[in-house]
Structures are given as C-alpha cells and as structure tokens.
Design a protein around this nucleic acid. Structure first.
Length: 109
DNA sequence: AAGGTGACCGGCC
DNA sequence: TGGCCGGCCACCT
C-alpha cells in the first residue's frame, strides 16, 4: 500500500540500527524531500503512537536532542541513547558523525 | 475552505 | 560571531 509520508518516515527510522543515529534532514533526503525535514519532525510527533519508531535515534543535523523535550521524561531520550552506547553531553551527541547512520535510500517510487 | 503550525535546514545580514 | 529570515510540505483546527 502506498505508505503516507508519515509511514515512510517511520519505515526509515525503524531501519536505524542500535547505537546509531540520524538527522531529520537525512531522513527527509532519503524520502526525496531534503527540504521537507520539517515534515520528518512532524511525523515524529505522531510517532508517539508507534512503538517501533525509535525517535530517540533521530536528532537534528548537529546531533542535538532537539526533540528530547517531546519525550516523556526530560532526559529519557538521552538515557535511551546512552543505553545504546551513544554518549550524550548537554543534550548533544558526542562523536555524532561517528554514530551517524545514513538511511538507506529506498528505491521506492 | 483557509490559515497556522512545526522534534528542520540553509543562507544571509 | 551570532541572530534572523525564508522555504518546504503535510497535518490540525
């Protein structure tokens, strides 16, 4: 079925392996809408209904937990990331580039 | 139906 | 060096 924009975002986020993170722009780009990074974040907002969507692995381009404020706890997002081996300092991922994972550009059309 | 919003990105002043 | 602005597209009221 034709996955909506949201569903497509979820699919990509679900593909994020443990200990890895990605940026909204990267996901948007993978969807073919690099300029629609906002939509990705929008979709993440609805991801609260999804249990298979590790939104905590999605951060902005600088690796900052911009959306941590949207999580249940204040540092829940950071806790989850650290739980996977990702170091987080001051709401910012350490060695973000090293943990950066580029979404697989699905040949979906 | 139209307007406003948003967990962003990139560029410009 | 930092702050401001526009663009982008889909969802919500």
């Amino acid at each position: 079925m034709e996955a909506n924009f949201f569903d497509r975002v979820y699919e990509v986020v679900r593909q994020i392996p443990e200990g890895k993170v990605t940026s909204y722009g990267a996901i948007a780009k993978a969807l073919g809408a690099a300029r629609s990074a906002r939509m990705v974040g929008w979709a993440m907002n609805a991801s609260h209904n999804m249990d298979d969507v590790p939104a905590h692995r999605v951060v902005n381009r600088i690796g900052m937990l911009s959306g941590k404020h949207h999580f249940e706890g204040t540092n829940l997002m950071q806790q989850l990331l650290e739980n996977e081996g990702i170091k987080v300092e001051d709401n910012q991922i350490v060695d973000f580039e090293k943990h950066f994972w580029q979404p697989k550009v699905s040949g979906n059309k």
